[in-house]
Design a protein around this nucleic acid. Structure first.
Lengths: 219, 219
DNA sequence: GCCGCCATGTTAGCGCTCCTTACATGAGCT
DNA sequence: AGCTCATGTAAGGAGCGCTAACATGGCGGC
């Protein structure tokens, strides 16, 4: 067959060229197309052009591949969040809303990653890397929460961890319930990004973080 | 065999006694144990004591059974929410927090229903009953939002639909991320119910609904 | 009260997937 | 050059979704 040789641009390949990477990419494509359940080990092998048994040289079983995809997803997710947060520039509130949009954009533009991370039923204990990358992604949210809290007087500061959990929960809730492009779910009067931005504005207002700290504009 | 006859209390049974109900119950048990993916048509048939082909007399395919489970789940969900809301008695805020606890309790105590409803990838278009029961459940949330809004001056009222979506998103986010009993996910410094209650208090505070309209709950 | 119909169940089987075991091959080290 | 081991293939068992053809028995029509 010729497909063994038509990847000469990968110098480190043994037989196939790095099959592991290609399997991950195939898995991403399949999950994105047909959901995390429609993803099939055999079909990923087929897409990579190898026999159905070949993937087992790189992943113990199907779940391990999914866990690997999820871990890579959390890494890309963290990078996206960190880039959007940009150390809170120019000011924490602007950066925070940018962070929210980036969250939803990731869920929307990388449905395969997001599915593997949150909807495929992969336990975070599946691998240490998975747990670590998920923790790093959450730490990004927590940093943003801390920066926002810093503007409050000390006796009014909520716990940063709790605030990060609230942010994550509302973001994930909106992404999971309304963030998908396909028409399977409920039509909205506004975009998911607008919905999240409005929700976060109200939430921050409740904490005393906002355009008018304690007196909403009466007129 | 005796299992054909040991359901004499069901007068309408043909051969088995109402197999359809038993299949739904078996599916609920399996989904609760092994997640929506671990659920198997053949195993549900085995639990009901019939051959693997028998379920196809009652459900076109596996997805239709899942959609049926989801629809029943939404019905039970709506009943739970309506009971918890109790027409906003004794006052809307008390009833609202009771509603939030009921939401999480449902997700926690009926993981099979909740999985089928939100995590199994069942499209709401799978059946008209599913869409209708999901709409009725959401209407319950929306009613609560409207009752809470009613206490605000007219020029400060947010759209009730948006508010209901926020409530749903945060509730679902907390349930999906932190509401499960099994140890696969992240340990929390507080219970999911407390987390949701705190988040909703802050959110309502941001809308101007709360014990003291302009001072956050510092105590 | 008997009979035929049709809903409900059965067995048999196809094609697929997950995963294992045994075998083949070729890259890189010595 | 030759050895070795990682990386691939081939073959097969068990299980599942689903279909087709066949069996059974409850119910309505006569």
């Amino acid at each position: 067959m010729s497909w063994k040789r038509d990847r000469p641009e990968h110098p480190r390949g043994y037989h196939h060229g790095n099959l592991k990477e290609e399997l991950v990419r195939a898995a991403l494509g399949l999950i994105g197309e047909k959901g995390p359940n429609g993803f099939t080990f055999a079909e990923a092998a087929r897409l990579a052009g190898v026999s159905p048994a070949a993937p087992y040289r790189h992943f113990r079983d199907r779940d391990e591949l999914l866990a690997d995809v999820a871990a890579r997803g959390f890494q890309a997710f963290e990078a996206t969040l960190v880039r959007a947060w940009d150390q809170g520039r120019p000011d924490p509130e602007t950066a925070f809303h940018r962070l929210g949009r980036a969250y939803l954009a990731f869920a929307h533009d990388e449905p395969a990653y997001y599915s593997a991370m949150f909807e495929a039923g992969v336990s975070l204990d599946a691998s240490p890397e998975l747990r670590a990358s998920a923790d790093r992604a959450f730490a990004g949210l927590r940093q943003a929460a801390e920066a926002l809290i810093a503007g409050l007087p000390q006796n009014k500061r909520p716990p940063a961890l709790m605030m990060a959990l609230h942010i994550w929960a509302m973001s994930h809730g909106i992404a999971a319930l309304f963030g998908r492009a396909d028409g399977g779910r409920r039509p909205l009067p506004m975009s998911a990004a607008e919905l999240l931005e409005a929700g976060m504005l109200i939430y921050l207002q409740g904490l005393g973080i906002g355009p008018e700290t304690a007196s909403p504009p009466a007129g």
